[in-house]
Write a protein that binds this DNA or RNA. Sequence first.
DNA 1: CTCCGATTTGATAGATCGCTCTAGCGTGAC
DNA 2: GTCACGCTAGAGCGATCTATCAAATCGGAG
Lengths: 192, 192
Amino acid sequence: MAGTKDRIMAASAELFRRNGYTGTGLKQIVTTANAPFGSLYHFFPGGKEQLGAEVIRSSGMMYLQLFEIFFAPAADLVSGVEAFFAGAADTLRETDYADACPIATVALEVASTNEPLRKATADVFTAWIDAGTAAFAKFGLGEDAARSLTISLVASLEGAFVLSRALRSTEPLEVASTTSVLAAKTALAARP
Amino acid sequence: MAGTKDRIMAASAELFRRNGYTGTGLKQIVTTANAPFGSLYHFFPGGKEQLGAEVIRSSGMMYLQLFEIFFAPAADLVSGVEAFFAGAADTLRETDYADACPIATVALEVASTNEPLRKATADVFTAWIDAGTAAFAKFGLGEDAARSLTISLVASLEGAFVLSRALRSTEPLEVASTTSVLAAKTALAARP
DNA sequence: CTCCGATTTGATAGATCGCTCTAGCGTGAC
DNA sequence: GTCACGCTAGAGCGATCTATCAAATCGGAG
């Protein structure tokens, strides 16, 4: 069986994503993870805040890997964008509009109330932006253009997640995909 | 002085926006609003959920009015987009990255956990989309194009808010503005 | 087999949560 | 005056929250 710490982190990631940080209790986490309560404070002596920070960073890195699969240098950029948004829409539908961005919910909750956790979410977004910039630069874009395109894609995706989860419809994700494809094509056309 | 109910709703709107729904306590609300605790249940017999729903709808309609000012039929569409994003960036900076979308934080929190509140956020987003579609149709766009452009703008804005608040930078809002201007120009160029 | 550190276990403290309840205040109608 | 009613006022309920603690248990090293 997986280690207790891993089970706690996996359960926390899922509950945070669906119920938010303040909306998830530690009792609920250990129950879901089938872990003894004391183990939580054994592995995370810093309490809920430390657990939250580790889960944010870990989930962020997992999502980053997903991103890098879709934008592997060999693939076509526009196809990658379309596939990425389509995959997000599929996941959303399959999970009854529950599983979208693993950290956006927490990011909004803690942005003005908990500086260590805000920092964790900022580090994840920064890692995404840096990775996207590097990946898109391989398609011939300049540093600035690659960075702007990445930020634009991430913003469209995150915003579409908000709308799609609230409306229980994948229409926003489909529109965001079209807009992002347009942005990508425009950036490619402007290559030096 | 403003009525007690108004003070409670104003305080709730600010606290929900910054701390989230589950992250805000009713005691905290009445303290901020300088209102007696009993008054809260006098005006909102349905408790926290009723208060949340009314605040979501009220804040959503206020933001809708803001939107309609920027996209009054007389103005230029592209200028309106630029001004709207620039205004959002100003507000964010002035409030130390606290005051962004009044309902996105709550929307993500309740999307999978509280159906009445999820419905309230969905109604607000729907009202925004309908209003934007009608406003953009006046610039000569077809129904579908106007609707897609609206959804694209709202998604870019919401996503940029997530990134900007977490990163404590207005860069994402500026990038989203550029992308949205591109989308608007493309839509205008494709007019029948 | 013994020992020791790592991990498990759950009871419980102290604070806070949403919410209910009763009593009192203030003002307009008559 | 006095009655009715909208509103103020806050004590307190049971539940739940995060966090702490000491004891039980396990597994590998010597």
